[in-house]
Simulated scan of single mutants.
Amino acid sequence: MTETCAPEQVRRVACVGAGVIGGGWVAHFLARGYDVTAWDPAPDAEARLRRLVEAAWPALEQLGLAPGASIGRLTVTATLEEAVSEAQFVQESAPEKLDLKRELLTKLDAATPAGVVIASSTSGYPMTDMQTEAVTPGRLVVGHPFNPPYLIPLVEVVGGERTDLEAVRWASRFYETAGKSVITMDREVPGFIANRLQEALWREALHMVASGEATVRDIDLSITEGPGLRWAIMGPMLTFALAGGEGGMAHMLDHFGPSLKSPWTRLEAPELDKALYDAVVAGCDDAADGRTIADLVLERDRGVIAVLRATGRLPGSETGPEAGAE
């Protein structure tokens, strides 16, 4: 792929599809100071999009706007071709229908200037299945966000079998420049990473409701008042590493590894062989990045207290959902 400009030089972004996800992307890119052109085939798309951006803007102001950021830098075009004619990056956010995605990406490939990367917001389809009819599939990548894209930092980037590696690298650099937290995946995985984890929790929750083991309220409280507080600071792997005390993940696996055979979930546990054991321990060491267990405990504790205070769950908290309510 011959790129038209470096990721840091992008000034104009096109967003194709302006629903909840596409509109969230529009708001995010505007807040980061880009000129944004948008297109959506729905007859009321422009009015809905502008309402969404205006509703998101107060939150974006709190996060901090980039110099020059303005809602006035949004242009809604009458055609797809107009939207992408001068784009330096394209974000597609059409509904999750494979035939529609495939057709739209093919049209975008034909209409977008050569060398411009085109990313899909798909939440599950592999790019390999979507790029089959494109003339230049090498520039097509997945840029999977989380709702709302203007608020949740994560985006997962991965190419398909016919995607150029340079396009994946370029997209990851662009998203980072645009203020996102990026996971660049080495290979396609159905549902990507975060959705796989979300889905596992969701399915187990449905099992528990269906069998009468827990209520919806029980399940939500079990996360918001339990592990969810820790996950906001560090993910499940480092969180479990701290369960091993000074021995870290190795001690945790030695102590709790046998419970993988216990019927705590409907998911089948992998065999905790030496390769998996070593990979998890080494991965936690890498993630700790030089921080000791004591450092991580202090970081976790401070973070959880901050979350509790921010959500009004500590005595005397002046913030949270009820604070300032009218």
Score class of each variant (00 low, 15 high):
E199C: 04
Q198I: 01
G64Y: 03
S181I: 08
V209R: 01
Y175L: 15
Q91G: 02
R309I: 00
L105S: 04
T265A: 06
R51V: 11
I223P: 09
R187K: 14
V141A: 01
T319S: 15
L80I: 06
H207K: 12
W39E: 04
G33Q: 06
E268T: 14
P153L: 09
A87E: 09
G33V: 00
R48P: 07
Q9N: 13
P315C: 05
D109W: 05
M185L: 15
R291F: 07
K261S: 14
S222Y: 03
D254F: 01
E213H: 06
S259Q: 15
E204P: 00
T75N: 02
D109E: 13
A18T: 15
L105C: 02
P95M: 06
A56G: 07
A200S: 08
R139T: 09
P263G: 10
A83L: 03
Y175E: 12
Y150L: 03
L151K: 11
T184S: 10
G257P: 11
E268S: 06
R217A: 13
P41S: 07
P227N: 15
L74V: 00
G159A: 04
V158S: 11
V182K: 08
R73G: 01
P145H: 06
L80R: 10
V117F: 01
A325Y: 09
P258Y: 00
M130T: 11
L206T: 11
A27E: 01
P263M: 05
G191C: 06
V142H: 00
V36I: 02
G247C: 05
L260I: 09
M185H: 09
G64I: 05
W39T: 09
E156V: 01
P145G: 09
G303A: 02
G33Y: 01
P148I: 05
G226V: 03
V157E: 10
P227S: 11
L105K: 06
P126V: 04
I183D: 05
A14K: 08
V76H: 03
A288P: 14
R300T: 08
G324S: 14
